[in-house]
Amino acid sequence: MSTIQILFFFLTALALFSAIMVLVSKNPVHSVLWLIVVFFAISGHYVLLNAQFLAIVNLIVYAGAIMVLFLFVIMLMNLNSEAEPRKHIWMKMAGVISGGCFLMVLVSLVRQATDMQQRTALMGSGNVGLIKNLGKALFSDYVVPFEISSVLFLSAMVGAIVIGKK
């Protein structure tokens, strides 16, 4: 096995295990922390695909900023495992079965898509994800959508301040 394969299997196992732990944990704070582990594992996958910029931005934005806010809210609301409403076993079963069906549909869709046929992921090579190429693409080919989305962010920020001032 090559180094990349070893790392791939390790990261996949870590991501799946911690994703399950997010759902299984009774304590919401534990769930948030497991979710952060998931983000780390996914960032590791991005690094294997040589998309370093995406990997680190995933960490800064999701694990570093959004999850901190989640943690803030959960800590201040002081949710406990005792306070969680207990659901009936049939409800849980129904949830698992319908979720599993949905997963199966998604996986088969991805497998059969014509875009995906005869394609393999570029492991450790390929340079689309490097910051230089990504920046050039964003500021030449996709400059209009990029600027429009920045205006969208600005308006969201102004909206948050207006709501906060009320």
Binding site: I56, L59, A63, F72, M75
Partner: peptide, 24 residues
């Protein structure tokens, strides 16, 4: 790595967790 400075930012933003988790 060619994202050295961004990496430092990532780590700095992780530093909050030690304080928050310990305090909570």
């Amino acid at each position: 790595i060619n994202i050295g400075i961004l990496y430092i930012f990532g780590v700095v933003s992780m530093g909050v967790y030690g304080i928050m988790i310990g305090g909570w």
